[in-house]
């Protein structure tokens, strides 16, 4: 008899079932087209903000693309997210210019303030922190981007202040 081994149990993450019908127009558009994998994934991410597991399955089912290849592609490219993201995505630039101007201290300060690590999302789903390669605003280094707004010539403190302001704004919105 072999030694009695206990198999690894996969963590079952129960998440809300996304509305998969939203994918139909996307599938309609790209089905059967050569090289459609990345646009499909990008489209799905645009819909949900991330790519839910169920979306992978539906895309595979409906387009005939292989799941393992799709997952391989999704995990290869930095753009794709497999988990829901916060309402505001904080992108801290870590390009060369920003690095030389101490971008690390910006990330550190935000991590401390939000108690999350790079790529993570706050518990209230308000913020997701991401490090990005270069936002192309080298002359304003160090830079971060929240939504469509870019903030330049930052310090850690200034960055945290901006985030706090957003949070306050959000809570006011909630009350309304």
């Amino acid at each position: 008899m072999r030694v009695s081994r206990i198999p690894v149990t996969q963590k079952v993450v129960i998440s809300e079932m996304p509305d998969l019908s939203l994918l139909d127009p996307l599938i309609e558009k790209y089905k059967g087209r050569k090289g459609n994998m990345i646009p499909l994934l990008q489209g799905a991410q645009n819909i949900y903000g991330y790519i839910p597991k169920e979306a992978f399955e539906k895309l595979s089912q409906d387009t005939g693309l292989s799941l393992s290849e799709m997952y391989g592609v999704a995990t290869f490219y930095a753009q794709f997210r497999m988990n829901p993201v916060g309402k505001h995505i904080i992108k801290v630039c870590h390009g060369t210019a920003c690095h030389v101007q101490n971008a690390n201290s910006i990330t550190d300060a935000i991590q401390d303030a939000l108690k999350i690590k790079d790529t993570e999302t706050t518990e209230d789903r308000l913020f997701t922190l991401e490090s990005v390669a270069c936002l192309g605003c080298c002359s304003l280094a160090p830079v971060m981007m929240i939504g469509d707004d870019t903030y330049g010539k930052l310090t850690g403190k200034a960055a945290v202040k901006i985030i706090k302001e957003i949070r306050i704004r959000e809570s006011q919105n909630d009350e309304k």
């Binding site: 090289g35 990345i38 990008q42 290869f76 490219y77 930095a78 753009q79």
Partner: peptide, 8 residues
């Protein structure tokens, strides 16, 4: 246009 997905 093909949008890259973030890989240097």
């Amino acid at each position: 246009i093909k949008e890259g997905a973030g890989a240097f």
